[in-house]
Design a protein around this nucleic acid. Sequence first.
DNA 1: CGTTAATGTTTACACGTGTAATCGCTTAAT
DNA 2: ATTAAGCGATTACACGTGTAAACATTAACG
Lengths: 122, 122
Amino acid sequence: MRISDAESLVMEALWRESPLTAEDIAAAVGPEQNWSDKTVKTLLNRLLTKKAIAAARDGRRYLYSPIVARADYVQDESRGLIDRLFDGKLAPLVSHFAETNQLTPDDIAELKRLIGELDDGE
Amino acid sequence: MRISDAESLVMEALWRESPLTAEDIAAAVGPEQNWSDKTVKTLLNRLLTKKAIAAARDGRRYLYSPIVARADYVQDESRGLIDRLFDGKLAPLVSHFAETNQLTPDDIAELKRLIGELDDGE
DNA sequence: CGTTAATGTTTACACGTGTAATCGCTTAAT
DNA sequence: ATTAAGCGATTACACGTGTAAACATTAACG
């Protein structure tokens, strides 16, 4: 099942560090998003029913941990975008960024390095 | 305003060719998506109120054309994804694809070419 | 000229999402 | 033991979206 935008912010907190209590997560995400702790609880529950996270009882509270791996999530999201907008190929996306001048010299250097490695490794 | 997934399929038809009648669009998109012509009409109206497309009366019907450019849409979508998931930088996305073995030799060749050009051009 | 067919306009409706408030149970403090 | 406080669970509610049916209007055909 799909992880929504708001939910993904909770996931990001858990991917950074886990397990966390609801309180921890509210503290990590709430202020930034201007969310009440109630909102965070709702998101946690939805993520639970979606089996995206697990909860382990710890006394009176729960400790939450991700079940879905960030890599898998990132995978689905980026594959989806590339399939929808760039005919499933990565190069056109890079090309688009290049054409719209969204690449800093650092980006370019990093890309060069990556591509070089690829060539060697594969 | 945001263009939804279903709406974007209508936009794609118009980006491929415009102006088009509602009928044209239904013919172009409907079968693939299993949409009734009613559904296409609804999407066209929503896109109109979102000012994503324009309609020019042509006798009894309208001819629809995009107002939003595909490049701008692609721009927003891909920037959004990269900001959300890759810290705003393109290189980590490419890196992710490389690590998860989603690059065909063709992709790699194309990327090499692109990066090479970049280097020269900029 | 009236009826039908083609189009566009309005209304519908369930589901996910963002954003919470309220209810209820359990534990800690008095 | 009673009450208050802290948590989780349940309920709420408006808005966007996917998907379409119903209604209205107008032009064409008989």
